[in-house]
Amino acid sequence: MEMNKDTMLDLYRQMWRMRSFEELAATEFKAGKLQGFVHVGVGEEASTVGVICQARLTDYTTATHRGHGVVLLKGAEAKLMYAELGGRATGLCKGRGGSMHMADLEKGILGTNGILGAGAPIAMGVALGIKYKKLDDVVFCYFGDGQSNEGGIHEAMNMAGALKLPIIFVCTNNQYGMWTPLTKASANVDLAKRAEGYGIPGAAVDGNDVLAVWESAGVAIDRARKGEGPSFLELKTYRYYPHSVGLPDPWRPKEEIEEWRTTRDPIDRFGKVLMAQDVKQETLEAIEKETVDEMQEAFNWAMQQPFPDVTQAYQDVYTNLAVEGRTV
């Protein structure tokens, strides 16, 4: 595949931006600075970057409970995201959503989602709207291997196929749902093959090879923009952190985690590709460091922000205090 060096270096940077964002979120969660829960996608960078970095501003995306990377790389500001994770009034969603309800509608970010599979019906509705208005925007619909067995995912894929909706169904197959291996959750672990059942194209891709992901996502996006309907991408990858930061992780073999980290890491692998094309190691190290500094600065800003005032607790919710006779 042809890709110019600047684009490749930018993909490398975006992978580091996601990793640096997530690493700092994990550290600061354990330090007690963030609210709620955080699920980080360290190890899954190629599968996120290779897809969402091809999105236009006017495209839409859903994201899962492990969705910080998608939100960041679809264009949300890191400082507002950290403020959101920290429950601050100036956060991306005024500090009310946190990790799993993080949306930025102006950038087409329809929200991370704590309910497994719930992004798919949302993606369906938005895609139907795009088709109705005869636009050529597309919707990215992310889900994990575990939630690939939720009913809503199947219903959405089936109906999107029938209506030829512009959706790219992106399955981040990190091989576990919390601690349950995919082999125990389904008799068919070749998830991409399910596409055939919906009459849509499906591709199983090495999700730790950013160029391979880029290429297959590109095909799916073109197809959707041309009005030819949805596709299903299964991106095989791995996460290094426990399901949720701070949780025990005794059921995944240590050696397996170590093996993915040391021999199949998506950033290391892409770094080697770049070095083979005469990019200097110092250039790569500088990119890494810049992203670490960028995220630290964003985090520091977030920690200076005020918490919401308690009197705002009932703003933006569907309740009528007067009717219910309640006050804050």
């Binding site: 354990k30 007690g32 949780l247």
Partner: peptide, 11 residues
């Protein structure tokens, strides 16, 4: 190294 906060309700 500090005692980590491993979950929402851990004090």
């Amino acid at each position: 190294v500090a005692m980590p906060k491993l979950g929402l309700s851990m004090e």
